[in-house]
Design a binder for these strands. Structure first.
Lengths: 301, 301
DNA sequence: ACAAAAGTGTTAAACTTACACCCATGC
DNA sequence: GCATGGGTGTAAGTTTAACACTTTTGT
């Protein structure tokens, strides 16, 4: 037995208390709303949706939480996330990004639990099929897609000195699914001091949302917006395999919460898509071509 | 006692095994190399350096590892990182960014340990003072700044089909501090499949570097390069409070490992700096103005 | 005819890039 | 004078942004 082996056999690994590690996910999708008037020539409205699970047990029983689960021995945290995602949505092929780690003490009444927060984007087609499966699932989890809105309510910038300033943003988060309404106010406090930025999110109030998940949702949706702002093709992951450019543009607009100019948008994404021969005719207007992603153009990123 | 409290008091929180959670840090700085010939009119060369700690205990005794430590109960993972950073470098004011989580099984022979990998940037002035303190420190840790080089050795792109392709990059990592040389080869394997990217880093060989740290270093240095590429002002965090534009440009060049065109660089960063009245005269050429960061221009990011 | 959405073209402004050039200093 | 780096200007090329316009469909 060499020194290394000897050390390890004597090593008391349970000397210190350890945290539980969870992967929590903000799963986004975009869904078309049913239009009541059949004769209306307008396209159906689309909404950004977030998947939430109704808690069946305390703590926060009957409130709504992000889907998630604990890291199991032998798997990576990405595998945890992918496993949970498949269980909750049936989606195999989601975009998955680790966004942040939430490790504040007392964030979970059950004990010391840190959360690795993921963003997941699933495409509409896969989702709408599989949501039915969730509801019919044997473990009878109540999962719902909530229409989500996040708005800047108030923004204050305080210049303390030449080199120190503070930014405070108040966000209002609203989620709606049929008759259920979840609301929260989350403050983002940014300090520039000694040339360094320090960001802190704080829940002002949270109605119907379990744990610190209002904070996580705010944080991840902001990240999604930033991602799509700098690189619109990120939003492909919310689209089915074949889509119209107008559909794609409106997906981007819904995320960014602002209107874009059509010709400019199309020029910007021109290289990332391939026109197919297929067309869609869906109402009283000129039919539109279907496009698919141009995988080769994603090259080198 | 209500239902919530009852549940929590009966909740067996230790039913499942839990991992230890560590914060490991790639601490970068840029240092001027001493120039041997005093009469030389050239500016001193600068090098990108990474802080490594020599392990005093098994496993990997006498090999070099990234500075880091375990998450303690009651602190956030950012607090862990900041605490460790201060202990190892004395730096109070580093830029700190959580880059990735390494949670592969068997990555640490001591047991189940996941690592939250941070990037830290410390400014040269603060560093050079404090490195002395580390060496003289009572816990006698051997800490060294290693000159670091990371080069793409080989790059292959395989197109499997219209929608599937693979990218393989071989990186060669070299670190040198006086007579000590650390080397590693790390492979980056990227797969695009079903419209989704999957990235995997794999250590091909690793000489003198403990654990999977060669992988972490490669991953974080790549991220630093990406950060600086898209936003040069990130490199401010490697500069002292007052600096010349040439110094700043060469810092960026060292990170990106490529030369930039001076007038263009200056135009790009013009808004982020403020010219002071101070000048530096350091040799046989025209003196240069000192600049400082223009904090107000960082606004809204 | 007309409403709705698909799809293209045009121009000015802004930014990027690659150069060329002059300036101040120490030896 | 000349080597070395500091510092600025210009002109071509590219990208962005705002706007106007034509086309195709169902009612």
């Amino acid at each position: 037995m060499n020194e290394e082996q000897k050390f390890l056999s004597e090593y008391n690994f349970n000397e210190y208390e350890k945290p539980s590690v969870a992967a929590d996910m903000a799963v986004f999708t975009i869904m078309k709303e049913e239009v009541s008037k059949e004769d209306c020539r307008k396209l159906p409205e689309k909404k950004l949706k977030l998947l939430m699970i109704k808690r069946g047990n305390p703590p926060y029983k009957d409130l709504w939480a992000l889907p998630g689960g604990f890291l199991k021995k032998g798997e990576t945290i990405y595998e945890t996330a992918r496993r949970e995602l498949k269980e909750e949505t049936g989606a195999q092929n989601a975009y998955l990004e680790l966004c942040n780690v939430f490790s504040e003490k007392d964030r979970d009444p059950r004990g010391w639990i840190i959360s690795q927060a993921f963003m997941a984007l699933v495409n509409t087609d896969e989702t709408q099929e599989n949501t039915q499966k969730i509801r019919a699932g044997s473990d009878a989890k109540e999962a719902e897609w909530f229409e989500i809105r996040l708005e800047k309510k108030e923004e204050t910038n305080t210049v303390m000195s030449e080199t120190e300033m503070q930014f405070d943003i108040l966000y209002e988060l609203n989620m709606v699914s049929q008759e259920i309404r979840l609301n929260a106010t989350v403050a983002e406090h940014k300090v520039y001091q000694d040339y360094h930025e320090l960001v802190e999110y704080k829940i002002i109030n949270s109605e119907g949302i379990a744990f610190d998940h209002a904070k996580i949702i705010t944080c991840i949706l902001n990240r999604l917006r930033k991602n799509v702002e700098t690189d619109a093709k990120m939003a492909f992951d919310l689209m089915p395999e074949y889509f119209t450019l107008t559909d794609f543009q409106s997906a981007v607009e819904i995320i960014l919460d602002k209107q874009l100019v059509k010709p400019n948008f199309r020029r910007k994404i021109a290289d990332y898509v391939i026109k197919t021969d297929e067309m869609v005719m869906d109402g009283g207007h000129r039919p539109s071509y279907l496009y698919k992603r141009n995988v080769k153009s994603f090259y080198g990123q």
